[in-house]
Amino acid sequence: MNLFRFLGDLSHLLAIILLLLKIWKSRSCAGISGKSQVLFAVVFTARYLDLFTNYISLYNTCMKVVYIACSFTTVWLIYSKFKATYDGNHDTFRVEFLVVPTAILAFLVNHDFTPLEILWTFSIYLESVAILPQLFMVSKTGEAETITSHYLFALGVYRTLYLFNWIWRYHFEGFFDLIAIVAGLVQTVLYCDFFYLYITKVLKGKKLSLPA
C-alpha cells in the first residue's frame, strides 16, 4: 500500500466520522442529504460482500466494517433518531436517475459476469455519483454549514488521492483497473466546483454560500 492510498483511506474515514459527529453533537441533520447517505450505505454493502468470501488483511477487514457500521448509523440518525430535523423538502434529487443507469451499466461493463463482480462494479459506478443529491441540496438552499463543507472536502480528497494511488500502482506495479479509474475520475470531477468554493471561501473563514 502506498502513501496516497493510505491517506485516501484516512481522508474517507475522517469524512465519515466528521459527518457522524456533526449530526450527533448538534442533534440535527439539517443540510445533510439523507438520499446521498442511503446511496453510500448501498455502495458499501454492495462492495464489501467479499468480507464473507475473501480475506485480504486485518486493515482491510477493519476499515470495511467501520465504513459499513458508520454509514448505517448515519442513515439511522437521519431517518430515525433525528428525523424531525431532516430537511426532506430540500432533498429532492431523484435517486432512480442514478441507481438505474449505474445498475444497467454494471451489467454491461464489468470485468466478470458474476454476481459479486457485478455488485462490486455497481458500487464503483454508484459511488462516483452518490454525492449528487448532497451537492444538489447545497445548490438548492444556496449554502452549507462549515462543518458540512469540511465533510464534502474530505470526501472529495479521498477519491482524488486514490487517483494518485492508481498512477503510482500503474507505474510501479503495472496494475490498473480501468473501471475504478474512469469512475474515480468522474467522481473527482464532480467535486471540482466544490473544491474551488471551499478553497476560496471556507478556508478564508467564510461560510459556504452560493450567489443567488
Binding site: W120, Y162, F176, L178, A180
Partner: peptide
C-alpha cells in the same frame, strides 16, 4: 492488467 483480482482497495 485490468482483470478481476482480489480487491485490496476500499
Amino acid at each position: 492488467d485490468s482483470e478481476s483480482k482480489p480487491k485490496d482497495e476500499l
